[in-house]
Nucleic acid binder design. Sequence first.
DNA 1: GATGAATGAGCATTCATTCAT
DNA 2: AATGAATGAATGCTCATTCAT
Lengths: 201, 201, 201, 201
Amino acid sequence: MTTKRQENALKTREKLKSTAEKLLKTNGFNALCVEDITKAAGVAKGTFYVYFKHKEDIVAEICRGYFKQIEEQIEQMKTHDISEKLAVYFDSFMRAVMLYGINICREWIRSSIDPKTAPDNTDMTKWQYDVEMLKNILTNAVKNNELKKDTPVELLTHMIISELYGMMTCWCMSDGEFEPTEWTKKFADMPLKAVLDKYLI
Amino acid sequence: MTTKRQENALKTREKLKSTAEKLLKTNGFNALCVEDITKAAGVAKGTFYVYFKHKEDIVAEICRGYFKQIEEQIEQMKTHDISEKLAVYFDSFMRAVMLYGINICREWIRSSIDPKTAPDNTDMTKWQYDVEMLKNILTNAVKNNELKKDTPVELLTHMIISELYGMMTCWCMSDGEFEPTEWTKKFADMPLKAVLDKYLI
Amino acid sequence: MTTKRQENALKTREKLKSTAEKLLKTNGFNALCVEDITKAAGVAKGTFYVYFKHKEDIVAEICRGYFKQIEEQIEQMKTHDISEKLAVYFDSFMRAVMLYGINICREWIRSSIDPKTAPDNTDMTKWQYDVEMLKNILTNAVKNNELKKDTPVELLTHMIISELYGMMTCWCMSDGEFEPTEWTKKFADMPLKAVLDKYLI
Amino acid sequence: MTTKRQENALKTREKLKSTAEKLLKTNGFNALCVEDITKAAGVAKGTFYVYFKHKEDIVAEICRGYFKQIEEQIEQMKTHDISEKLAVYFDSFMRAVMLYGINICREWIRSSIDPKTAPDNTDMTKWQYDVEMLKNILTNAVKNNELKKDTPVELLTHMIISELYGMMTCWCMSDGEFEPTEWTKKFADMPLKAVLDKYLI
DNA sequence: GATGAATGAGCATTCATTCAT
DNA sequence: AATGAATGAATGCTCATTCAT
């Protein structure tokens, strides 16, 4: 059971996170500073450090929250086949990109490219995380006889991830100006399909 | 005619650029600071600002030097057909990625993602530049009747660029650990070819 | 009679003290913080302030514990003469230095040098305490006709204390590297003896 | 030749040092902060770091200035014998203590006790410095046949230094209240003399 | 053109202490 | 007595940039 105090503490923590998230979405990572977060959250500067050891930690947690959701979604699809799973994965990835907006995407890329930000950070970058997740999906498909034993899981993983990250990166680079729905079509008759077909059983 | 003084000035400028480039390649953008550049170049701090208005400018110029080389190469291929041009483009892009190394790539991505670094910067980002260049190649191919009039130049451009940037981004994210030559093979029987075929005359 | 509650409270207090002492010995004063103490003692941060008004207080109490022991020893020597008492005093002082280790010594010196640390501190520093104690011993020796009436108690006190603190300070400064037993010999045929002899009856 | 600019720069440096010295003497080390120094010196905060890499550095330099003076004095006494040299050394040491005042002394002790203050500091502490200097004086006396070959230089050094530091430390502890001239007398018929006599030739 | 002294805004982090529960 | 959430003052240091010489 949680006491009133614990509840309040949790509320403070969430308030900090949601405030930081809002600021991150609005102004981007570069403009994010602890003082702004706490001021906007209506708490003292020190309170931030009650809940987060480093400034980077809250950003990491915000971003992780986003891309972990995809995993849960995929995990609930135990009965579906590999094509469906990949379709959902692509869809979820794209939705995340659109939903969370350009500044969050930038932070995903930034922190994946230049991972050594927080001193004692041992967390995976989004990229590492995505690679692992996709590799799991494909490996399981091999185990479940949905894909041939000689499927080049590693290579396929990188192809797909590269496809998605290419899209995401370019979307950020265009400052969100092109319509990512165009890309949905592209994904529909995904060139990858041709490649994947070879390994489908 | 250039006076001795102008010559020396040019030398100083080049010395600054080559020094900064070395530091950029070695330590990455985050670790680059004006003091280090000038100290290593053997000039005073103030001298830097004789030649570059902002720290970003020298970085931009260094990087631009790199990706402009591709354009020259393509321009010299006037007689070749569109397929050859694209092949050369892909090849050049990849070579640049490998040659200039991970820290330069990171800076290409970083500055393309977050373009508003220098206050009065009006330069194109590498990404904008690449998009323009590729669009030109394709547009010219349409004009020259190598591609059908209804070729979706814009879309094709983004598909290709996204492909290349996906590769480059993921290469940086993996900290240069995977073998980009694997990707050459992928590019060889490039899925795009299938798409492009539809519009070839 | 003490209730169970009072007993527990006392236990908590002692736990805090012994934990702080351990940390002080290991890491020194600079690294000592309330959070570490309470965490290591298994109580909440606030509990510390139930028993100690200031962080300095617990340190003072720990250190005082050490040097009060010497007094008790001396007091139990009522029948012994002044030479024996001083010999024991020297011996006890040195043993304390060795036993409690370099970090405790540093804190003795630090707090004696810079006494105004705790806001409302009225306690004596170790130095003041040692001076008083030694002065008492000598004054009593005068009263008991062990020393002449014209003995310069004040001066002798300072000479002896200075001798001991010189040794202790240098021991800390050498980072405990020289062998304090060398000093025992020095104290044996203590130059002071020559001085003291003049006033012995 | 020094230009006007270099002169001004030197002046700024000296201004910073003298200001810091004044603050150090008045308020002690604990109260010393960069902001106060620069404000009082009438320069910008950043200017401090043009001349000193760390806050500690300026303090170290101030203090070093003080105790290096003694060395120069001793070095100019090449023709004098060992007794005179030691007498001058004692005298100089004491004068320094009195002249530079209690807060400087505290800093000498503080930094000698707890040397790891500045990150990249490789300088000797005052204590180490004093030990070396005295050891040299004695070693040279042995070489010059002023002291017997079997003189325990190391031990004598520590005895003398301990004597001096004992005095200095106690003076700080008494908050400068006792009269150090009393100590001059003590040094005059210095107990050490008795010890030293054994080794004089 | 070259210098290098001076600037000063900008920012994360620590930690003793309080106090409502 | 015990808790632990909240506080907020305090501070060293970086570095791009300017400008008088």
